[in-house]
Amino acid sequence: MKKLEVFDPAMCCPTGVCGVEVDPVLAQFAADLQWLGAHGVEVLRHNLGQAPQAFAANAAVLKEMEAGMERLPIVMVDGSIVATGVYPSRAQLAQKLGLALTAEAAPRLKAQGCCPPDSGCC
């Protein structure tokens, strides 16, 4: 079973609604992770504000954070970093995990590929 881990910046909630401005990318990303879970991927998501122990225990993540907080979010597949500073789209996630993306499963949100790490999460 493939394992996907996400290390989020400190924020209230995975959809970012608690921030001053809601970022649709965050809401879609949360839905994409659910989709991955339904397709047999083990998904783990860590929020710096709520689960700092996961960050402290991961040397690769610590190294990225020392280089700059804008490296968050960090996405790992089976222990290797596959993205920093952005929330990948569903298509990108599917490709990195070797999943086939059917037309029906493709989300309507166009991949923006970029979400500034401090763009609206409290």
Binding site: C13, P14, V17, D23, P24, A30, P107, L109
Partner: peptide, 21 residues
């Protein structure tokens, strides 16, 4: 935000909006 989301994304967003914050 919701109009650009699929059904699952929208459901998650609605759920988070019910938080005390």
């Amino acid at each position: 935000a919701g109009e650009r989301l699929d059904a699952a994304g929208r459901a998650l967003l609605e759920e988070d909006l019910r938080s005390p914050c």
